[in-house]
Design a binder for these strands. Structure first.
Length: 257
DNA sequence: ATATGTTTATTCCTAA
DNA sequence: TTAGGAATAAACATAT
């Protein structure tokens, strides 16, 4: 029957916490960011144990997403309709696992009040921006969708001041808490997905993202991800879903280019 | 209606 | 033994 493969653990409960499983799923995705349903799918695809009692563990997993500061809920970009938001890892939480083994957690990752407040302010501003973008799009297209389900709304650059939105007012309180960077190696556990259903965003190699720091996997992924965002942004003129201001400090999205 | 999120409370587990 | 992290349950809110 379902002979245990190298990483399936058969029907046995895998030794990973929900936090670890979720981090795995997020990390395995090209954008380091997944909606809830995809996190579910990642887990059930790999670990048959979680194909039963779904109500129980999915409730627990949602609890973890909301409760733990290491997970950040990023609003959907308006050109990516769907249910729920995207979930990603807080950049400062990439080293929350000892040696990166996913089996041992360091201390609990907790944001301090100031950090959390400014992060929430940024995310709220991003959501506001997305709403404004959507409203403008609807305004320019009265009477509903024409033809296709949703035409990729190009040429709707929101550069010219949509509405007076309060600026995110970041940069203010960003306490510098230097943490030791450790490699975040998920290694063998995260074999590339055999399923290649969704067209991955064109992997445009950016000529320079100069980061003269130690090339940890996290760092490389961050650079790659940032480059992808920039490339996608040039085409769509849409706000990015999420980007990192730098690799060790606070997360940041950019409102205009 | 159902999926997705948020929050509080209780219990379980384990490293110190 | 206990303090803190993790799992579970459940009530509740919100969005589609």
């Amino acid at each position: 029957m379902p002979r245990p493969t190298r990483e399936s653990y058969g029907d046995q409960k895998p030794p990973f916490s929900y936090i670890a499983l979720t981090a795995m799923a997020i990390w395995s995705s090209p954008e380091r960011m997944l909606p809830l349903s995809e996190i579910y799918r990642f887990i059930t695809d790999r670990f048959p144990y979680y194909r039963r009692n779904t109500q129980r563990w999915q409730n627990s997993l949602r609890h973890n997403l909301s409760f733990n500061d290491c997970f950040v809920k990023v609003p959907r970009r308006p050109d990516r309709p769907g249910k729920g938001a995207y979930w990603t890892l807080h950049p400062q939480a990439f080293d929350m696992f000892e040696n990166g083994s996913l089996l041992r957690r360091r201390k609990r990752f907790k944001l301090h009040k100031g950090e959390k407040d400014s992060l929430n302010a940024e995310l709220a501003a991003l959501a506001t921006f997305n709403r404004a973008f959507l409203a403008r799009q609807a305004n320019s297209n009265p009477g509903g969708m024409s033809g296709g389900m949703f035409a990729p709304s190009i040429n709707l650059c929101p550069r010219l001041s949509p509405e007076p939105m309060e600026a995110p007012d970041t940069a203010a309180l960003l306490p510098t808490v230097p943490r030791p960077r450790r490699a975040f190696t998920i290694d063998a556990l995260l074999e590339p997905e055999p399923r290649r259903s969704s067209p991955s965003p064109p992997m445009v190699q950016q000529p320079h993202c100069p980061m003269p720091l130690s090339p940890t996997p996290y760092l490389l992924a961050a650079q790659r991800y940032h480059a992808e965002l920039l490339a996608g942004l040039q085409q769509s003129c849409l706000p990015p879903l999420w980007t990192w201001r730098d690799t060790s400090q606070f997360s940041h999205y950019t409102l205009n280019s």
